[in-house]
């Protein structure tokens, strides 16, 4: 189990006329990835998703708040003492092409981390080959075929499975999948998604799933939770199916309205929401962060910042003064 409370991160960019510019990437984010659970983060480019994933994987520091891994607070530990905890979180990158070393066979790629793991857990060297085969079978590829080959000899889907197998060599508690299916061919995407779902059940590994393609979040398990993040703030969260079918925050509605409609198969939702302006990160933070783009903005929104609170139901939460359900997603043409 990993929880975050009030996780805050501000990048300082050099080089602007006014000296260092502050870029708030995360503004007090709370989250929890239960054992074997799944949490998805959606939001536009630059809203802080990758930053959060990297913080959870120990690849980036945070300025404020806390990350708690299996009951241990990371804020209380020094850099070295944190490492064994962060090793339980493994990051899967977007690009299965650059993630694997092109000069090494898959066997070599898996052997190095497995040898380390064997030392850590007091196992013999012969265990590593067995384990490599076991992991490849687990991710749904034939070890005999894959092990002697180089990455360029494999399809994108196979490569991503190898990347996942490599992440599993560390026996992680949580996999962070940052756009892990967006570069995979559409015909193979569902295969990777059901693999992630399967790993949750079979290994009890939690999944933090970061995506632009919101529909894919439905396929990592019907018990998953969805977080909508905007300019570093979680603005709506709840069960994935609920947030997609009955979003109440105008930003969530904007994201869902932007998803292409498969005309002929589907018709667009009747109350689509289109932001009035493009994302502009470099502006003042007074009031609601979405106010300048929100079609439903009122006087109050300009001056007061809404916080994530309880919504209509017990489980759905939002940060908006004027929440309102709207039907924005496409529906089947036959319905």
């Amino acid at each position: 189990m990993i929880t975050g409370t009030g996780v805050t991160k501000t990048y300082r960019q050099r080089g602007s006329i006014l000296g260092a510019r502050q870029v708030p990437a995360l503004r007090g984010v709370d989250f929890a990835v239960p054992r074997g659970g799944a949490v998805s983060f959606i939001g536009e480019s630059g809203c802080g998703k990758t930053t959060l994933g990297r913080i959870i994987a120990g690849l980036e520091t945070y300025d404020d708040g806390d990350i708690v891994i299996d009951g241990t607070s990371m804020s209380g530990l020094g850099h070295r003492a944190r490492q064994p905890f962060f090793r339980r979180v493994q990051l899967i990158h977007q690009d299965p092409y650059s993630a694997l070393n092109p000069t090494r066979t898959i066997h070599q790629t898996l052997s190095a981390p497995l040898a380390l793991r064997a030392r850590q857990t007091g196992r013999s060297r012969s265990w590593t080959d067995e384990r490599a085969e076991e992991l490849l079978s687990l991710v749904g590829i034939d070890p005999g075929y894959v092990l002697p080959r180089y990455p360029h000899q494999l399809s994108g889907g196979m490569r991503q499975r190898v990347v996942i197998a490599r992440a599993l060599t560390m026996d992680p508690d949580v996999l962070v999948a940052d756009e892990a299916v967006s570069m995979i061919d559409v015909s193979l995407r569902l295969g990777i998604l059901s693999l992630l779902k399967d790993l949750r059940v079979r290994l009890g590994v939690g999944v933090l799933f970061i995506t632009h393609d919101i529909a894919t979040a439905r396929y990592i398990g019907d018990d998953s939770e969805l977080y909508v993040i905007y300019r570093g703030q979680v603005v709506e969260r709840g069960p994935t199916e609920t947030i997609i079918a009955e979003p109440v925050h105008p930003y969530t509605q904007s994201l869902l309205s932007a998803i292409p409609v498969l005309h002929g198969l589907e018709r667009p939702g009747e109350e689509q929401v289109v932001p009035t302006e493009a994302l502009d990160e470099g502006r003042a933070d007074e009031g609601c962060l979405f106010a300048r783009r929100c079609p439903f903005v009122t006087e109050r929104c300009e001056h007061e910042m809404p916080v994530l609170g309880r919504g209509g139901g017990e489980v759905q939460r939002h940060a908006c003064f004027h929440p309102q359900p709207r039907s924005v997603i496409p529906v089947g043409a036959g319905q």
């Binding site: 193979l188 569902l190 295969g191 393609d213 919101i214 529909a215 439905r218 997609i244 079918a245 589907e266």
Partner: peptide
């Protein structure tokens, strides 16, 4: 094989084999 926002997710299926 296209992940969809509405409808029964069990109807979606990956295409077997590889490109």
């Amino acid at each position: 094989a296209i992940p969809r926002l509405s409808g029964d997710i069990s109807l979606a299926r990956a295409l077997p084999g590889r490109p």
